[in-house]
Design a protein around this nucleic acid. Structure first.
Lengths: 214, 214
DNA sequence: TGTACATCAGTGAACGCGCGTTCACTGATGTAC
DNA sequence: TGTACATCAGTGAACGCGCGTTCACTGATGTAC
């Protein structure tokens, strides 16, 4: 039974919250079988509803997938934002927390992660999806700006570039080693350690690590 | 017509090279519609052959996909190896070439790239796939060892870690920005520039950039 | 408070479709003698 | 060189299946008066 309710029986002819139930079902299926192994019909079955019912809420399978991905990006942005916690107590420490949050999201929410990055949806065709992705990136970018704030202007690297570098690094580690559904390759160290070490070395190369800790 | 032959007609009852033709068809289909949008039946149709014919060459769809991915890793390793060119004329320059080759592969061979990294095949279940992936990584690892050779032993970082860092960075950039099939997000600089800058900064942080150029 | 009515959110039957898979078969190819 | 035979690599028909989608329908809910 996928729909909520204490008594274990449908409350009536109407489901009550089918839209949410379909999204939950989609997440379960994507988590189990990857973004390809999820069909409109099976999501309906999971929600305990006829195959025609989902059409009241989503135009087609892609629309449902896009909504899952959008929610994923929003949850992702929230998690990163919470980890950043306005850069307290120090921006470097907070940036490490953001990196951990990135990896934690990939590990704990593999279904969202798949829908966001591997579902084959083109962000250009789904405006809200694109915007939600931008909001998540903006958190990382804001963090990098704060981190660089103490660097003298004449030798301050562009925050945009730094944010792209750290995003790419985090994403690469998450994709290659940090997935929850299947450990892709064994590592001599944890993904978290790998990311933290790389971040430190990179910031050292920028010459901002020491300052950022102060 | 997918099978080779000058006259444009099947040479006879036998295809002659169906195995290759199926792999070519799979690559076309994956390139067009992603790793999910490829079926055994459609690959057969592309090869101009009945739906039952592929079973003479592959146990099932997954076996064909795994073979595509394995070939992808082997081609990938060759490209990286050629780009490295034994570290000539200097290891840093050669390492940049390897990075460019990584991005070029993702852009020019999106079908292979998808099959290798996004097809949902578990490397643990396909030994040859795992081994082929290791051979590709070994090229990068060898490059990092050469790059670090001039660093005094007491402050030399582990080549394994450096290779993992650079692989992750390259893979992240390729996944997020460098795909040939769909430009995922606009960038203020090219993926190549982004990767090259990150590599330089990172190596600077390791304290090996200057030595490596010499 | 009750009633009539509009709207909403489901049902379930039906359809065409393509896929995966099996099967007995047969044309083509290679080889032993 | 010819012939018999084994093996290989295809065919094409058939099957069950699940999916996507449409449709007229109907039970449930909300609201105007």
């Amino acid at each position: 039974m996928s729909w909520s309710g204490k008594d274990g029986g449908r409350r009536g002819y109407h489901h009550g919250n089918l839209r949410e139930a379909l999204i939950t079902a989609a997440l379960e299926l994507i988590g189990q079988k990857g973004p390809a192994g999820f069909t409109f019909a099976e999501a309906a079955r999971h929600a305990g509803v006829s195959a025609a019912a989902p059409y009241r809420h989503f135009r087609d399978r892609d629309a449902l997938m896009a909504d899952v991905a959008r929610r994923g990006f929003e949850l992702f942005a929230q998690r990163l934002e919470a980890a950043w916690d306005q850069g307290r107590p120090a921006s470097l420490e907070a940036l490490h927390r953001v990196g951990h949050a990135y990896l934690a999201f990939a590990r704990e929410e593999p279904a969202y992660f798949s829908a966001m990055f591997e579902s084959g949806l083109s962000a250009s065709q789904h405006r809200e999806l694109h915007e939600a992705g931008d909001r998540a990136f903006a958190v990382l970018r804001g963090a990098c700006e704060a981190l660089l704030a103490n660097v003298p202007a004449e030798r301050r690297p562009p925050a945009m570039m730094v944010a792209l570098h750290i995003w790419s690094l985090s994403h690469g580690i998450a994709s290659l080693f940090g997935r929850g559904d299947q450990a892709r390759r064994p590592l001599p160290m944890s993904p978290e350690e790998l990311l933290e070490a790389a971040t430190l070395i990179y910031l050292d190369g920028l010459g901002v690590a020491q300052r950022a800790t102060g």
